[in-house]
Simulated assay, not measured.
Amino acid sequence: MKEASFGAKIKALRTDLDLKQSDVAEKLGISQSVYGNYEQGKRNPDFETLVNICVFYQVSADYLLGVPTESGCFSALSGTLRSMHPADQQRVCEYAEMLCFYRKHKK
């Protein structure tokens, strides 16, 4: 399955937050038309703006730029973990440690 483009990713992030292009553009200190061009893939942000977009949406540049970091179910699990409450993240980590311990000591 082909990964979504930079523009598609920032559009999805924006719409998930129920924001308009003009809302995001204002927060980033750029015009709505420039931001719209990013979403449409007609233009790419400069480094400073890319950093600002990452900070605004609280995502990594690797994610937005499509840098492969994990594959398959690990990528999906990573995304799920990031969206969880910190206490639940801790529970998942403890469960994973318990599974590893069990597998290591199973006879």
Rank of each mutant, 00 (worst) to 15 (best):
F6G: 02
S60E: 08
S83L: 11
V51A: 11
G29L: 04
S71D: 09
V24W: 05
L19H: 09
Q58I: 00
D23M: 10
K107R: 12
K42S: 06
G66A: 05
M1F: 03
V24P: 04
D18Q: 12
A12Q: 14
D46E: 14
S78F: 05
P86I: 09
A87L: 09
S83K: 14
E3H: 10
K106R: 13
E48C: 02
A76Y: 05
F6R: 02
V59N: 06
N37A: 15
G66L: 03
S75N: 13
K27Y: 06
K42V: 09
S83A: 14
T15K: 14
P45L: 09
F56K: 11
D23S: 12
S60G: 04
S5C: 11
N44W: 03
G79W: 03
T15S: 12
V92M: 07
Y102Q: 03
S33G: 08
S33Y: 05
L77T: 06
C100W: 03
I10Q: 01
L81T: 08
K104M: 00
A61G: 07
R103W: 00
L65H: 04
S22D: 12
A76D: 14
A61K: 05
Q58E: 12
G66R: 06
Q21T: 01
I10K: 02
A87E: 15
A8E: 15
S60L: 04
R91H: 10
A76Q: 12
T15M: 10
C73G: 07
L17Q: 14
V59R: 04
Y38V: 10
K9D: 06
Q32C: 02
S78W: 02
L99A: 03
M1C: 05
A76C: 07
A4G: 01
D46W: 08
S31I: 05
E39K: 09
A8Q: 15
E97T: 07
E94A: 12
D62M: 05
